[in-house]
Design a protein around this nucleic acid. Structure first.
Length: 301
DNA sequence: CATTCGTGGTT
DNA sequence: TAACCAAGAAT
């Protein structure tokens, strides 16, 4: 449980690098609200920064507080989510906004457990919001941080698919005692993984940890079995995405025939539609039409 | 613990 | 160009 002897050194090197090399992202600005940080973190789950930026700006302008989003319909959130992918995140963010209003007086909580209890907020996002928005001292273990620590400290190219207890305890042991310094270290090591210690073509020549990296010292060995390639053509996900795209583009309700045109294969279309209805991403109207939830009467935009 | 869940840029 | 993959969460 003791801090590794060179922990302070690694933390200092990374935080110095971050101060000089970090991207200028709006949710990192001093004036960013905890709510805007939460919105960014949920949007950034499995979605690249470049695609998040314009949607995040639109959301923050339109719904600057949890109460503002809570007053909208879930369908409005799904619609404004656009093409970020994994649209259930939009639904969960909307549900989180309502929970914040109802259970936390409209203020995004600073407590990790309270954050973790919000819809769409897992271990990573709870730690990130607690740390980045509130200065709390929490280990922030996303895929970037796991990759950097795995390479530098373990000498392996990629971390295991599932996070281990030992990994979490080590990350906690690395944390500076002060919460805000810990947050700076966390965002710094995350940024290092995003910009330098990347999954595919790491730029070890630009890495501040190059002289301390076990993986680089070992000659950057490829370790572990390659991940199974994810198929896309003909999957239920593609069908769901296609159907939801039709509903997103429509001003209001959509007749069933238009969904049948969008995905002619019946068995898969019905399965996908049933899934969307089950998830609450789509609403079935009395007349046999479909719409984003709460947007059946929506005019345009 | 393994699966499911979008999307589009990069290599 | 097909494959890869980008700040995970829920079940």
């Amino acid at each position: 449980m003791d801090r590794p002897p060179d922990a302070a050194e690694i933390v200092e090197v990374v935080t110095d690098w971050y101060a000089a090399s970090a991207r200028d992202l709006p949710w990192r600005e001093p004036g960013a609200s905890a709510w805007s940080v939460l919105v960014s973190e949920v949007m950034l789950q499995q979605t690249p920064v470049a695609r998040v930026l314009p949607v995040w700006r639109e959301w923050c302008e339109r719904w600057p507080t949890p109460a503002a989003l809570a007053a909208a319909t879930p369908g409005d959130a799904v619609h404004a989510w656009g093409r970020l992918g994994y649209p259930r995140r939009a639904l969960r963010l909307h549900a989180a906004a309502r929970a914040v209003v109802e259970q936390h007086g409209g203020e995004v909580p600073a407590d990790h457990a309270a954050l973790r209890a919000l819809p769409g907020v897992g271990d990573y996002t709870a730690a990130a919001v607690a740390a980045f928005a509130h200065g709390g001292r929490h280990a922030v273990l996303d895929t970037n941080v796991r990759r950097v620590l795995g390479r530098v400290l373990d000498g392996v190219a990629a971390p295991r698919p599932a996070i281990t207890r030992a990994e979490r305890e080590r990350a906690e042991a690395l944390l500076p005692a002060d919460g805000r310094q810990a947050a700076r270290w966390s965002v710094g090591v995350m940024e290092l993984g995003a910009l330098v210690c990347t999954a595919r073509a790491p730029r070890c020549g630009d890495c501040p940890l190059a002289t301390r990296c076990r993986w680089l010292a070992a000659g950057r060995p490829e370790t572990g079995p390659p991940r199974r390639a994810q198929v896309w053509e003909g999957t239920d996900r593609q069908a769901r995405g296609t159907l939801l795209a039709v509903l997103r583009a429509a001003p209001g309700a959509v007749p069933r025939a238009r969904l049948e045109d969008a995905w002619p294969e019946e068995v898969q279309r019905e399965r996908a539609l049933a899934g969307l209805l089950h998830d609450g991403l789509v609403e079935e109207l009395p007349g046999g039409a479909y719409a984003l939830p709460g947007r059946w009467g929506a005019a345009a935009g």
